[in-house]
């Protein structure tokens, strides 16, 4: 019998692909991003125009008609709506959202400044929740049948029903008000004490779901054939879990982390309001309520790009965690 050569050759498939073909996934992603940004900016432009007259906001309610006309001419608000829209889109293309109606700062810079603080919070919360949730999830999913695991599973289940802002209020009540250990609100970049309750509240909200998804994925991986193979070749239970089941199970966890990040951008509006934390969530509410159009628009734009980038990152980590996806086009 002669030696055989494998004909499927997945390994070398990329070598002879043209540059265009290998750039395809990136181009497709960029197309998605363009579509998303177009959708978001257009929707917001018309929504905000429907909501109120920006000239009125600019001039204040007691402005005379002459003042209003002056402002309209100055900001191009006297032109037809379509022209205004095209102008606006042209500016957006140059990343120029205009100045904040409230403070006169560059809207985009203002948003980016606030974003920094929100990202700090989000990053801390996600680190905390993954650090706790993944080990617990792995433990729960490894052998789901025991009594101890059932009890922990039940507790996690009830915790899943507690919204983040409820946790925040309860924590404030105990740690800040009753025990006077921590400040109940405010933000100080170097005041670590102001960080604790917001971080815990956000992490606490995300953790139960993360635990349950990790547990379900680990339990599923443990039923796979390759676990049986590993067992038949002498792997210990711990090796089965850490070396074989978990790398596969983390695929689902990575996907969830991406979704949770997007959720947190929304959730931060509530948490930040509770703690008077000057991040983009707080700014979103503030600027929408005062009809600060440029800021709202810049903010939506930034959040969309951010969430998109996170999703792309999750995609990328999928490719790292699952080699089967590496050679595939998007």
């Amino acid at each position: 019998m002669s030696t055989v050569v494998d004909t499927t050759g997945g390994g070398g498939a990329g070598a002879n692909r043209s540059f265009l073909a290998s750039a395809m996934p990136v181009l497709l992603q960029l197309r998605r991003l363009a579509f998303l940004l177009f959708f978001v900016t257009t929707l917001l432009f018309f929504l905000l125009r429907a909501a109120g007259d920006p000239a009125l906001v600019l001039a204040g309610t007691d402005a005379t008609p002459e003042q209003l006309a002056l402002i309209r001419a100055q900001y191009g608000l006297d032109k037809p709506l379509l022209v205004q829209y095209l102008n606006y889109m042209w500016n957006v293309l140059q990343l120029d959202f205009g100045k904040s109606l409230a403070s006169g700062e560059n809207a985009l810079l203002k948003v980016l400044d606030m974003l920094k603080r929100t990202l700090h919070l989000a990053f801390m919360a996600m680190t905390l929740s993954s650090a706790i949730a993944i080990p617990i999830g792995a433990w729960l999913g490894f052998r789901p049948e025991t009594l101890g695991r059932r009890i922990v599973g039940g507790i996690v289940f009830v915790f899943q029903g507690i919204p983040g802002y409820v946790t925040a209020l309860v924590l404030i009540q105990f740690l800040a008000v009753n025990l006077r250990l921590l400040p109940s609100l405010g933000y100080g970049p170097l005041e670590w004490k102001t960080w604790i309750i917001p971080t815990i509240s956000l992490a606490f909200f995300m953790m139960p779901q993360l635990i349950r998804v990790t547990a379900a994925n680990v339990a599923e991986a443990m039923r796979e054939d390759y676990i049986r193979t590993a067992r038949a070749y002498g792997a210990s239970p711990m090796q089965l879990l850490w070396r074989h089941a978990l790398p596969n199970a983390l695929l689902g966890t990575a996907a969830l982390l991406g979704t949770q990040f997007a959720m947190m951008m929304g959730g931060s509006a509530i948490i930040e309001t509770i703690f008077s934390w000057p991040g983009i969530g707080w700014l979103l509410l503030e600027s929408t309520q005062t009809l600060d159009f440029p800021v709202v628009q810049a903010e939506a734009f930034v959040i969309a790009v951010l969430v998109f980038l996170i999703n792309a990152l999750v995609d990328l980590s999928f490719r790292y965690l699952d080699p089967r996806l590496r050679n595939k086009e998007a």
Binding site: D225, Y226, T229, G234, H244, L321
Partner: peptide, 18 residues
């Protein structure tokens, strides 16, 4: 896996994909 080892039916699922 030492003195006694096994071969399974479906080689795609029997090997760890990652």
């Amino acid at each position: 896996g030492g003195e006694v080892s096994m071969i399974f039916q479906e080689p795609m699922t029997a090997l760890n994909p990652v």
